[in-house]
Computed example of a mutant assay.
Amino acid sequence: MYKPTIGILTWREGTTFKEPEYFRQLLRAGRRLGAAVFLFSPGDVNVKSKKVKGIFLSSEDKWASRWFRWPDVVIDRYWYTQKPIFKEYVAFRKQPHFLYANSRFANKWRAHEVLYNDENMRKWLPETYLYTSQQRKLLEMLRRHQVIYLKPINGTGGRGILRIDQQNGYYRMLGRDKNRNKKAAVARDASSLTLRVKRWIGRDKYLLQQGLDLGLLRDRSVDIRLLIQKDGSGEWKVTGMGVRVGPENSATANLHGGGKAVEAKPFLASHFGEEKADEIIRECHQLAHQTASTVEGHFGRMMELGLDIGIDVIGRVWLIEINPKPGRDIFREMGQPDLYKLAVQRPLQFALFLTSQQTPDGQWVWSGAELQTKQRPAKQMAKFRQY
């Protein structure tokens, strides 16, 4: 009996993975859906024999390995790393070996350019520049905005983010280093500030971004994580959303950095009332669908996006960041196991949908929606100022 085969492209060393618990849940879900699902890295692929050495869960629920036939669909779950192996992944990903459920994305600056070039997106975007260590733009932003952020263009999980504000003539800095450790410092003048920023950034590339007044809770960062995914019929659906509340005096609200998750509707209603909370949630859904459309229209087929959304003190909605390979632990943190299960299943359901669109000779049958996605805008991207 034919069983669809789905490969999950990721980094691995033996049976050591970046996301072991998530992958366990993913492979178990694949088994329930009747698919053969396995994990592999670029070095596991034998192009000549059209086979892949995959890691899977045995009937005893333990990691095991064997050779699999060429997968019908591959889900790319390879995360960015500064190690040389990432360059090998990029070169591998450019080869037309597989039908991928999700296209490669871009760094945060390139993503911002794409979104800003769509007039439908601009109302949700904070003022953002590529930072190149020029004191003038840093101080200009601090004069215009009460708070600013410096973010590594390839950072994840809140690593490397620095928050700067002015208090009583001084500059207060809060951040998390590359190991997510909290850091705090005070600069007495502009020269001291720029020196500290230069040391913080090092040789990495950073964004300079307008800070938002998200102080719905005193001395805590608050944002919304929304997950939008394609379902088993290839349609974008908002799976769910929740509010992340960061620890006291933290620059971020990430769960991995000690943040907590609470349900969105009760939290928003407690601050804005029921009617305004419903309005904010509807706008967050609208933002999610527009973001998915814009991203997919430029980068090609996607299957899921995690959106970090800020709600300021007057209830205005802002898009802070996009994650093309999002986590889904927020649903477990909120005590919503059914939503977590759905969030795990949907990428596989979409992958199975893709297998159903292939002809017997492996050719892809493009639907109308996918044809629109495949076509890249002919208009060149606008040039952006870089500071």
Score class of each variant (00 low, 15 high):
134 Q>G: 03
312 D>T: 04
249 N>S: 11
268 L>S: 02
54 G>K: 01
238 V>R: 02
336 Q>T: 05
61 D>Y: 08
170 Y>V: 12
353 F>L: 11
326 P>L: 15
369 A>N: 11
305 L>H: 03
321 E>G: 10
22 Y>N: 11
351 A>V: 13
149 Y>A: 09
206 Y>R: 01
58 S>F: 04
129 Y>D: 03
369 A>R: 15
25 Q>W: 09
110 R>D: 01
220 R>S: 00
160 G>R: 03
52 V>W: 00
292 A>E: 01
190 A>D: 06
280 I>A: 02
328 R>S: 14
47 V>Y: 04
53 K>M: 04
155 G>W: 04
144 R>I: 02
349 Q>G: 09
61 D>R: 08
188 R>W: 00
292 A>T: 01
363 Q>N: 09
161 I>P: 05
44 D>K: 03
101 A>N: 06
7 G>F: 06
305 L>F: 11
205 K>Q: 12
191 S>F: 07
118 D>S: 14
120 N>S: 14
179 N>H: 10
163 R>F: 03
216 L>P: 04
76 D>C: 09
102 N>V: 04
281 I>H: 05
251 A>V: 14
318 W>D: 09
75 I>N: 00
25 Q>Y: 07
88 E>F: 02
213 D>A: 11
252 T>D: 05
356 S>H: 14
60 E>H: 12
5 T>N: 07
304 E>R: 05
15 T>E: 11
9 L>E: 05
241 M>H: 08
298 H>E: 12
5 T>V: 14
260 K>I: 13
182 K>V: 12
240 G>Y: 01
376 R>M: 09
117 N>R: 11
24 R>D: 05
48 K>C: 00
290 Q>A: 14
145 H>I: 15
58 S>R: 07
317 V>T: 15
347 P>M: 12
198 K>E: 06
192 S>R: 13
51 K>W: 03
178 K>P: 03
132 T>P: 01
43 G>Q: 12
62 K>I: 06
139 L>G: 01
130 L>F: 14
115 L>E: 07
350 F>I: 05
134 Q>F: 10
108 K>D: 02
309 I>A: 07
261 A>Y: 02
279 E>W: 10
267 F>A: 12
149 Y>W: 11
174 L>D: 04
290 Q>N: 06
56 F>W: 04
353 F>G: 01
95 Q>P: 00
51 K>D: 00
217 L>R: 07
101 A>H: 07
298 H>I: 08
197 V>H: 00
247 P>L: 12
39 L>K: 10
235 E>A: 15
361 D>R: 12
80 Y>N: 00
132 T>S: 12
59 S>E: 15
239 T>C: 07
279 E>S: 11
264 A>M: 08
126 P>L: 08
329 D>T: 13
128 T>V: 04
286 Q>K: 15
77 R>F: 10
197 V>T: 08
191 S>T: 13
220 R>I: 02
111 A>F: 00
76 D>L: 04
242 G>D: 01
62 K>A: 05
128 T>C: 06
334 M>L: 13
295 V>H: 05
134 Q>T: 15
191 S>C: 08
114 V>H: 06
61 D>M: 05
163 R>Q: 10
164 I>Y: 03
19 E>L: 09
290 Q>I: 12
66 R>S: 13
178 K>Y: 05
229 Q>T: 08
271 H>A: 03
216 L>D: 01
75 I>G: 07
299 F>N: 08
86 F>E: 02
20 P>E: 14
140 E>M: 10
4 P>G: 08
96 P>M: 08
338 D>Q: 15
